[in-house]
Amino acid sequence: MTVLEATSVTKRFGGLVAVNDVSLTVSEGEVVGLIGPNGAGKTTFFNCLTGMETPTSGRVTFRGTPLRGRPDLILKAGVARTFQNIRLFPNMTAVENVIVGRHARTSAGVLSAIGRGPRYRREERESEEVARDLLAFVGLGHVRNELAKSLPYGDQRRLEIARALATEPGLLLLDEPTAGMNPNETAAAVSLVKKIQGRGIAVVLIEHDMRFVFGLCDRVAVLVQGEKLLEGTPAEVQSDERVIAAYLGKPPEDAGPKEKKK
């Protein structure tokens, strides 16, 4: 069954066409890679999917219903994301960050927060349990009460994933989940994505680490200068001349994790 269907998404910034007529379909439980050189429009495409940017044209549906408008509505529909340059709530603890992720799935309002009835207390307890479980799930159980900003880089990325998972998504968009990670952390990230897939959540991930992408993804789409160059299995993409050319003639096996310029 199709989870996400993006049809001819285009995004212009003035004269610059950042995303040009890109279509992508993601099925239930699938892991799809999105690769391409710097500035290809990958992040912008994510922004169009999640309501951070309004596409100039095109159509996005999630489980058959069109996605339009505000980020919080899209999240509520079931599309969660992480950010290329991590955006946690720096002065909240790890567990608080994840509990905030429960916002869309809980309902306490001002009056019930002041009244603190049994229903409110149950909901709070459930949120805390979910957050604790998710922190353990991503391997951060031991830093529950640390401030987000005091965590090491790799942990911050995992915390962001835990926060996204707390929103109970059907589709998770990961923007460069291994950027800045060491090889050990990257290996842990591979198994984490597999575990997420095991929960029945479809994943689309942007990555520059080719080993990571080709080892993990069911399908890979290549974006170059805003356009989708091709899409196929890792094997197909890996051997395609045009992809190699797009990456400055380097064979993709050697591309390795690319240091990002900020």
């Binding site: 951070m52 509520k76 994301r81 955006r87 709530f89 720096p90 306490a108 001002v110």
Partner: peptide, 30 residues
């Protein structure tokens, strides 16, 4: 009222907005 609100779903959402409005929106906060 203040104390109970600040330590609640609503209060956490406020703090999240203060910390990073865009991330708060992407986390489902209106």
């Amino acid at each position: 009222a203040f104390l109970r609100l600040s330590d609640s779903r609503i209060g956490r959402a406020w703090v999240a907005i203060r910390e990073d409005e865009l991330a708060a929106a992407a986390t489902g906060i209106n």
